[in-house]
Simulated assay, not measured.
Amino acid sequence: MQRALVTGGSGFVGASLVRRLLSLGWQVDLLLRPGFATWRVPAEQPRLSMHVIDLTDASAVEALLHRLRPRHVFHLAAHGAYSWQTDAARIAKTNLEATRTLALASLKANVEAFVHTGTSLEYGRKRHAPSEDEPAEPEGAYAISKAAATAFCRDLARRSGMRIPTLRLYSVYGPWEEPRRLVPSLLLHAMVGKWPPLANPKTARDFVWVEDVIDALIIAASRPLADPGAIFNIGTGRQTTLGEIVALVHGVTGCEAEPHWQSMPDRGWDTDIWQAETRHAATVLGWTAQTTLRTGLQRTIEWLQEDRERLDLYQGSLNLTDAQPR
């Protein structure tokens, strides 16, 4: 039985990864921060163990990994990706210090692969789809801390030989995403016949389905790499504007309300060009995104509707519980 350790397993992508690994028969150990949110964490399962720990406590982390002896570590714990997460000290501690501590402990525990998740924000503003060998030009505490963590992982991999690939994720969406994020907010509002406040319709993102991202994470953990510190862009290679995704949501929900563009002010990170260059992931990992945005949106709606309690939780997060579906 394969054994994997996952950080960030109470978050969106991490919770999805945990469910996939369990479905494959893996033994999964979750490393969780004190006071972690419980709503995404799977109910009690025989192959799932949870460990509450401070990831910056080097001695505690080393002792736990020495005891667990995982084959793979998937490091998804992060802070600062959401607009309301602004504490610069916590961002640095979570994204850089914890990454350093966990990676070094993984090396001592003879972990086969340490899969680090980065972000497309590490590139900064580009007027093209950046390749992995371009210099990082991050802006803001979150992007800077993630770029620094990627640099540390890359250096440690090349010095030690341990496989530490970094997957720079683009705009992941799908089941278990934070309700206030764009895709669930659009879907939940449209399902009751209205739209949330909207920014400039030309704002662009590369939206990638969460299960395609999980495929990439698992492949990166198991695939031999000529460069043990390789970086991979994980996106579709196609950008979608806000105007285009609203039109797609209209198509799958039938929402007839009129969008009110610029009812939300432009944000500092908004841009009209944002897409992944995916040739390196395709060549080295044999991975490409398989799910169209329309298909992913439809699957997300079906997931929301299949559980009334879950739908109520999501609608309640956006104060939509009293709205009547149309």
Rank of each mutant, 00 (worst) to 15 (best):
A15C: 00
L30M: 14
E112C: 03
L217F: 02
H72Y: 15
A37W: 07
W261V: 01
H250P: 00
L313N: 10
E258K: 10
E134V: 01
R181F: 08
T101Y: 01
F232E: 00
V115K: 06
K194Y: 01
R40G: 05
N319S: 09
W303S: 06
R67I: 03
S120V: 04
G268T: 12
C255N: 15
F36W: 13
L17A: 12
L242E: 04
D307E: 14
G140T: 13
Q275T: 15
H250N: 00
T240V: 05
V13P: 07
L102A: 07
F12V: 05
R125K: 13
E62W: 04
V246A: 14
Q45S: 09
R159H: 11
L102E: 03
G140K: 14
R47L: 08
D272Y: 13
G237P: 07
S120T: 02
E256L: 05
D215Q: 14
G243F: 07
L167M: 06
F36N: 11
N200F: 03
P138C: 05
D227F: 12
L5R: 13
D312Y: 14
G140F: 09
N95D: 05
H189V: 01
A148I: 08
L186G: 02
A92I: 07
I214P: 07
V252L: 01
A63S: 14
Q239A: 09
A289D: 07
K202W: 02
P224D: 03
D272I: 14
A37K: 14
M50P: 02
R158Y: 04
A4K: 09
P196E: 03
G118Q: 15
L198R: 05
L55Q: 05
Q2D: 00
I164S: 03
H189R: 02
Q27S: 07
H280F: 08
N95V: 05
R163E: 10
